[in-house]
Design a binder for these strands. Structure first.
Length: 223
DNA sequence: ATCCAGTTGA
DNA sequence: TCAACCGGAT
């Protein structure tokens, strides 16, 4: 951490440019299909991605990375396959809710016809899909312009002294979307870069040496 | 505020 | 060895 930023909190474009210059383009989401994005979004809830990859590999082995393939698994086997991603009983139930939702609504093709707002609201009806998971899906599976807020975003924005960092999910999301405009590509990269930055440097115990935002940062906020 | 849980790297 | 992990439901 630094001794404190000597200017106002950086805007989202600046954060995006700095992180991009440092980490390079990340081209998210690492998945082959929209369904895979959905499954990964559920499995990565409060869970390291490396553990999610093991679960996804186990599902792929069982040809369960399609709605029909996953629906063919017994609930016990589904839970067992995703075990490495943690919370496996809870998440198995959430994936089954997701499958039921896709069947009820006519699948991914049908959902693609919905307006972005309606698509988001529909996803939020699913048990186990909260704001972040819904927005992961809307942005990375359907390529719609919504910004995904997560714990890394809050932590970084707080340390940068940005407004709304401690506000509710919708407030923070709306503030970023208003700042950047409806820019799917920018939302995609900014969220991905914030996650990468959060993993590599901007941790709970930050590793500030060589941070690309070091000169604009107040460091760990205690209050 | 608590529970859900296996895995890993500082 | 243990905090932390791309949260959400109750």
């Amino acid at each position: 951490m630094t001794d404190g930023a000597d200017t106002a909190a950086p805007d989202c474009r600046t954060v995006l440019e700095r992180l991009h210059a440092h980490y390079g383009p990340l081209h998210w989401w690492p998945a082959e299909t929209a369904f895979e994005v959905m499954v990964g979004a559920v499995l990565t809830q409060n869970t390291a991605w490396s553990n999610v990859e093991r679960a996804l590999a186990a599902l792929r082995e069982a040809d369960a990375l399609t709605p029909a393939g996953m629906a063919a698994l017994e609930p016990e086997e589904l839970a067992e396959r995703i075990r490495p991603s943690g919370y496996y009983n809870v998440k198995a139930g959430r994936l089954r809710h997701l499958l039921a939702f896709l069947e009820r609504t006519g699948g991914i093709e049908a959902l693609s016809a919905l307006e972005t707002g309606a698509l988001r609201e529909a996803l939020l009806e699913v048990k186990g899909i909260g704001p972040e998971t819904a927005d992961d899906i809307v942005l990375y599976a359907f390529h719609r312009p919504v910004f995904v807020v997560d714990a890394y975003t809050r932590r970084l924005f707080e340390r940068l002294g940005r407004p709304h960092a401690r506000d509710g999910y919708e407030t923070l999301r709306a503030s970023v979307e208003a700042e950047l405009g409806a820019d799917t590509v920018a939302f995609n990269e900014l969220h991905a870069l914030i996650v990468e930055h959060g993993k590599q440097r901007c941790r709970p115990r930050p590793l500030c040496d060589g941070c690309p935002l070091g000169d604009r940062c107040y460091g760990v906020v205690t209050g």
